[in-house]
Design a protein around this nucleic acid. Structure first.
Lengths: 228, 228
DNA sequence: TAATAGAACGAACGATCGTGCTATTGTCTG
DNA sequence: CAGACAATAGCACGATCGTTCGTTCTATTA
């Protein structure tokens, strides 16, 4: 974890790779490509073995690349982990968030849920939802990785909540519904589906939960409903 | 992970410590005591760092004990992990399951939920619910540890489902309710509360979810409810 | 064509991992 | 008190961890 602390010279050249603005603004065709290839494999590996279980040696071996060559793309393991989180985020946004933003209000909420479910169900990540695993793995590990994960999860919950709120304004969801709570319940159910499907190797979990979530949304849209 | 596989002689003496029946049926006062002390610390450490992040060296250091002295209590790291899972199970049963079994039917279900919530809320494990973390960590790691976790989680879900079923027979919960699905939803909400409270350092998550679960149960017990 | 910058490599570092021996302690029995 | 035996410590092992260093290869630029 904190191996070889005495000599930590990686951060002495603070922005050797992250600030390309010196002479040529963008010109590293080979480096960028391999970096992306590394991250693609790394995200998949990390979704299975965890972000901490993701090892530079194993990752390099999986890519048939030298450890040092791989390492040079990131200044430290923490940097690599951050980059992996970012790469996973891009995939998540691409598959779940963006398509839903073609709609508004209730339709957007439904699209967010549906997209999440097929994201979890399909083999987007071989180890199931990356963020479910990562957020539970890092909830007790202070650092940049944890901070970023917290940020992203808050944003995701905020997206759900905002969609619910918009649907309320549009009159599609009852005003008594607590948007924050409903968003949270949906998220919990979705993560539960992922959990069950991974742990029990039971793909039917998503079907079950799809029903539960739809029922929960219908309940919020009106019709009868018991409010005790 | 699989360090030093060539020489694996630990399992050659299969039951040197687990079968006490030879001459004296029960006489290892010191050994058992330290073993339990080890496991108590190990469970706490594992709930924070994960079952794989739990390291023999760190555990020994935390107990001010030699690595080899600790190691002798278990034949391998996998054995240690299994023992940790078992120790966590005992705590869980003690705090959550057993007290609820003084009741029957709906009351038992309510007690199971309430006990789980205060188990997650209180500092039973310093890293939050042990099994939420462990089951997500090991969902892709085949082996005895995973098998046992699966077994335990199935049993726990079965307990919830059975309580619901009993409540249905007693006429306390409506017959149309799908016991398996309700059990699953409750479990998902509970794990969601744990997730949120750990990740966002927000203890109010449990209050929110307590309300959601109670609402969900009330909905199942009757009154109005929309079944569209 | 020569100079140069970036990308990848091989080897090695100190630390720590899980594990295996062997010796020493401590405790109970005869 | 001596011996037996369980419990623990000491020490070492091979492997792998994250990291650094100096070198080589490759491609663009002067």
């Amino acid at each position: 974890m904190k191996a070889n602390q005495p000599r930590a010279k990686a951060s002495d050249r603070p922005e050797s790779r992250t600030s390309p603005a010196l002479k040529t603004p963008l010109r590293r065709p080979r480096g960028l490509k391999t970096r992306q290839a590394i991250l693609r494999k790394a995200v998949n590996l990390a979704s299975v073995e965890g972000l901490e279980g993701l090892t530079i040696g194993k990752l390099a071996a999986a890519l048939r690349i030298s450890k040092s060559g791989l390492f040079a793309h990131f200044g430290s393991k923490e940097d690599l982990q951050c980059a992996v989180v970012e790469a996973a985020r891009e995939i998540f946004v691409e598959k779940v968030v963006r398509p839903a933003y073609e709609f508004r209000g209730l339709k957007r909420l439904q699209a967010l849920c549906e997209n999440w479910l097929s994201y979890g169900e399909g083999k987007v990540f071989p180890g199931g939802c990356f963020f479910s695993a990562a957020s539970l793995e890092f909830d007790d590990r202070p650092g940049r990785v944890r901070d970023r994960i917290v940020e992203l999860m808050k944003k995701w919950l905020g997206n759900l909540e905002q969609a619910i709120h918009d649907a309320q304004i549009a009159g599609e969801i009852k005003n008594e519904v607590d948007a924050r709570q409903l968003a949270f319940e949906i998220q919990a159910l979705a993560m539960g589906a992922n959990w069950s499907s991974r742990l029990f190797r039971d793909p039917s979990a998503f079907g079950l939960i799809r029903g539960a979530i739809l029922q929960r949304i219908e309940q919020a849209t009106g019709s009868v409903q018991s409010r005790e």
